[in-house]
Design a protein around this nucleic acid. Structure first.
Lengths: 362, 362
DNA sequence: GAGTTTCACTAATACGTATTAGGTCCTTGA
DNA sequence: TCAAGGACCTAATACGTATTAGTGAAACTC
């Protein structure tokens, strides 16, 4: 009776393996074995096999993916949990290439993605642990975003749930795929020094993220290795005080500025505008370098068409590698390196030149 | 013994209702009833209910969507199937705002999204029906993309699976949320006519998509209503022959060109370049109008900073409305209009002006 | 010709949740 | 004191497939 009413409601009911079994005169198990492929050492008579295949074809059988996944432990779905909206409003958002990489690799590996949209509500209710816990519906999960509620994540670590963070993390035991900012940032400073700059400033945002800390560390490392004075080297900004900062630096004889590029891009935008307002030529009057222009969103230098000098963050590759690592964790591969830093590609660009001969000094 | 070995193998197993039941000292059925909500006329003691809820919280229980789906038919997950990569390589891709709208509304409705990444392989294997079939793990599915394999879709219609197409479709019975291009396109022509133009051309791409057909229909409608000659009005292009077309039109005394804007943007890009090479001033020498600039990607007119005149496609709202419609279909709402066209917002822009007094005629 | 293998398949059960049909106790009314 | 009813919960089963253990029969071994 229930069956009949369901058939009425949904038109013709989808044929199942048991229907095929009835038609072909075999058991449901035989149908499953034949359609799925016999595991090993199992043999089915050629004729029976054909009868089942014919019946399946005739009935228009389609396996139910839900049942398939219930029966086998995996569901070939990877979670993607972002701590802001996944599709940001700002098209030029720097997250974007990472997501593209994630999708690309997931598709290549035959995995679907579950986008957890709880972010908005989770943010509203301040760290609702249930929101993060929901990711367990997937085989594993990728986390992405600068600011993360730590408590729910720790919970996942404890439970042994497979997940990978995109971006370096400080917490022990958290697998991640990040960018290797330290050497890349040091190398940018080295390039400025090689071009003749001795008075350099580093403009960074007010931010506690590991990515920011690493860049600063790299800049300091590069400065020390070149024998530069690191006092006053680092200047945090919110993007609004750029004019004052720039004026001060020019007065001090600064010839090059390194800028941190993050998802908001506030520091770079602020400085770029200030350079424009001051009527400075770049790189004629001032050399600029950017730490981590987002691939595909690469800003244009104030002067004209040339790209900023600095390095690119391998966003796409981070996304891809995170998927690979996650799948290894899910599979339980023992030898996998669970904390990975990918190298950043240097960008030649056109915003570094030799400094003008200093007036005071000559 | 089996349980124990599995626990060892996979670390700690995900908690199930039966685990909660054991902890709380009730049956699995009671757990399901309490967590899911008692149907009607069922009463559970307040104290028992609390014990179960506490145990669930303590164990970090999350319902298995696959099992949920198999047993009932809801899992609060909507599928999103795109017939190209979901995160396109081109950041300025016009699909983007639609996806943002989908995510926004899904989050608002407490639904997660399943991104089906089969697209790549499906495209490779030319219309593999299995790829589309995967969507059935979700409660319903959104389809998005200009070119769609029709056969698998028809299959879903037959099976009564709830889905919504983003973009108008010709096939009968397919629910969709699209943009109402016909009146919007006609209105653009009317605006040109009102500005004094009588010789107009419409540049469209070689494309069979309904969206293209609708725009052309609207342009023709607008032309007829203004009493214009529609012969030679429509010109398809691949973007490469723009110089020749433009030259011919100028010789004919054409004073305004309407351009179709699609996801590739080839037609507009080609014409814009041709206008530049011909040294024409827009709108001084030639008025331009664009049918459907993508929100957020709005092109700039060749002359300078002004936006193209024309209309905007309500991409974001289409995404949102598609989610709403899909949820209605899933809920089985009887009165829902299943085929919706949203109005396009006119864009004033700066590329329409009165035509120069024609030389030949005067 | 008793024992062993191989073949070809089936029975049974797991996967995790939803749902329905009861089953116990406890209170209440007559 | 017995029946009726309600409150509270459990047993049983369904959902559709995967998988393992096992079964009967034929074929082979010595």
């Amino acid at each position: 009776m229930t069956d009949a009413s369901r058939e009425r409601a949904a038109g013709r009911r989808r044929p199942r393996q048991s229907d095929i079994a009835r038609v072909a005169g075999v058991s449901q198990a035989a149908v499953s074995l034949i359609l799925r492929g016999t595991p090993s050492g199992m043999a089915l008579a050629r004729e029976t096999r054909q009868r089942v295949l014919d019946a399946a074809e005739e009935l228009g059988y389609v396996p139910d993916p839900v049942a398939t996944r219930l029966a086998s432990a995996r569901n070939a779905m990877l979670g993607l949990y972002t701590f802001s909206t996944t599709f940001p409003t700002d098209v030029a958002h720097s997250y974007y290439p990472v997501l593209a990489g994630v999708e690309e690799e997931a598709a290549a590996q035959g995995q679907d993605l579950i986008l957890f949209t709880g972010s908005a509500r989770a943010a509203a209710r301040a760290q609702d642990p249930a929101a993060v816990r929901r990711v367990r519906v997937a085989d594993g999960c990728l986390f992405f975003g600068r600011h993360v509620p730590e408590e729910p994540i720790r919970r996942l670590v404890e439970d042994g749930f497979p997940f990978v963070y995109i971006g370096r993390r400080d917490e022990p035991g958290v697998p991640y795929v990040g960018a290797d900012y330290v050497p890349a940032s040091a190398q940018v400073v080295a390039r400025l020094v090689a071009a003749g700059h001795r008075k350099i400033r580093y403009l960074r945002e007010h931010d506690q993220a590991p990515a920011s800390a690493d860049r600063e560390e790299g800049v300091l490392k590069g400065a020390r290795e070149a024998g530069l004075d690191t006092r006053g080297l680092v200047a945090p900004t919110d993007g609004a005080d750029a004019d004052a900062l720039l004026g001060g630096w020019l007065a001090e004889g600064v010839t090059a500025v390194v800028v941190e590029q993050t998802d908001t891009g506030a520091a770079l935008a602020g400085l770029g505008a200030a350079v424009g307002r001051a009527g400075l030529d770049c790189p004629g009057d001032l050399s600029l370098a950017v730490l981590g222009a987002a691939t595909g969103t690469r800003g244009r230098a104030p002067g004209g068409g040339a790209a900023f000098s600095g390095f690119d963050v391998p966003m796409r590759e981070m996304g891809r590698d995170a998927v690979r690592l996650l799948l290894e964790l899910i599979a339980g591969s023992p030898g996998a390196a669970t904390r990975r830093l990918l190298p950043c590609e240097p960008v030649e660009g056109g915003t570094i030149a030799a400094p003008r001969p200093p007036k005071k000094h000559t």
